[in-house]
Amino acid sequence: MSQQVLKHPGLNLGPAHGKDDRAAENMMFGFWVFLMSDAILFGMVFATYVTSVHATAGGPGPHALYDLKSAFIETLLLLASSFTFGMASLALKYKHGKPRLIGWMVLTLVLGMVFLGFELHDFSSMFAKGGVPSRSGFLSAFFDLVPLHGLHVAAGCIWLICLVGQILRYGLDTATKLGIMRLALFWHFLDIIWIAIFSVVYLTGLT
């Protein structure tokens, strides 16, 4: 274990990265603060959901609409993608070379996209059963919370593609490294949000 002082919470690049490590301090701190603000955003949407669960207005409720199997598969996909992104971060930190880094990133991207695919499929089957957002307060709240997470994942996927592009174009310069590190935080953050969604929306909804 090294005794170096952490420059910011989370995985640090470490002194071997010289000026990039120093540049990470403010940028990563700023991104943590941003995530805090984003967490409040999700908190408010969760609050809306929790207070609207029973506002089904005679329309279909959780039991009629949710598919636990699919939600469970989505959970596994997202957890796996967090693992692969973790491997990408380690490849970055310990300089395992661009091919391995890009490999892990692409794997993460694929998992993220499959997750989105499953999610869209869920939505369309809910639609087919009459579970559209304009049906009730409950469905409005559901379609605020879960797709908001999905949109974040989609944005993360686009960001991932751009970062791979930046690696190919500029190599691992400061900006690319910091980009990967921020996206890593973002990705794990979305994972945590999903765990909350899985517990609060799907598990609680189906008990």
Partner: peptide, 13 residues
């Protein structure tokens, strides 16, 4: 989009 967060009807509040 016709959601019902704050409407009078269909479970808005």
């Amino acid at each position: 989009l016709g959601f019902h967060y704050f409407t009078n009807a269909l479970g808005g509040n």
